[in-house]
Amino acid sequence: MAQAKKQLFEIDLQTNAEFFKALAHPARLAILEYLAETKTCITNDFADELPLSRTTVNQHLLELKNAKLVNSHSEGVKTFYCLNMDKIQEFKALLDGFMSKISDPENCRKQIK
């Protein structure tokens, strides 16, 4: 039922909500920061960098992959993870646009008067 109610909103708001949901956990933000800092594709070394179990880290990686913010590819038994810079730039543009809509100082002044 909740799924149907999402359809009542503009596609832009639905898209923004999906991106925000993917970033709605500090572990996911830490993973993205770690990938950005390493500036390369890395293997399952996240569990060594985060105070979480390997299983939990993999669940967070899956959420980031589903949002297409992270890409992965396998070589033998290793899986490599990389930032999807195209999707990150798309998200940045969406976020900038959304924040511009809600951050007009006139909005606040109109409400106070």
Rank of each mutant, 00 (worst) to 15 (best):
Q3C: 10
Q3V: 11
Q3S: 06
A4R: 06
K5H: 13
K5M: 05
K6N: 12
K6Q: 03
K6E: 00
Q7P: 09
Q7G: 13
F9R: 08
F9W: 00
E10V: 10
I11A: 10
I11K: 07
D12C: 08
D12P: 14
D12K: 13
L13P: 08
Q14H: 00
Q14K: 06
N16E: 15
A17W: 13
E18D: 15
E18L: 15
K21M: 08
L23N: 10
L23E: 11
H25F: 14
H25I: 13
P26N: 09
P26M: 04
R28V: 01
L29P: 12
A30G: 09
L32M: 14
L32T: 12
E33V: 03
E33A: 10
Y34L: 04
L35G: 02
E37N: 02
K39C: 05
T40F: 05
T40A: 07
I42P: 03
T43E: 00
N44W: 01
D45H: 15
F46K: 00
F46Q: 11
L50W: 04
P51E: 11
R54W: 07
R54E: 03
T55C: 02
T55M: 06
T55H: 05
T56F: 07
V57M: 07
Q59A: 14
Q59K: 07
H60R: 03
H60T: 07
L62T: 14
L64E: 01
L64A: 08
K65H: 09
K65C: 05
N66H: 04
A67D: 03
N71V: 06
N71P: 04
N71S: 00
S72Q: 08
S72Y: 00
V77E: 07
V77R: 11
T79A: 02
T79S: 07
D86S: 02
D86Y: 08
Q89C: 01
E90I: 06
E90H: 13
F91V: 12
F91L: 15
F91C: 12
K92L: 15
K92N: 09
L94D: 07
D96T: 14
D96R: 12
D96I: 15
F98Q: 06
M99W: 10
S100L: 05
S103C: 08
D104C: 10
D104W: 12
P105V: 01
P105K: 08
P105Q: 11
E106T: 06
N107H: 15
N107M: 14
N107K: 10
N107R: 11
N107G: 11
C108V: 14
R109C: 04
K110Y: 13
Q111D: 05
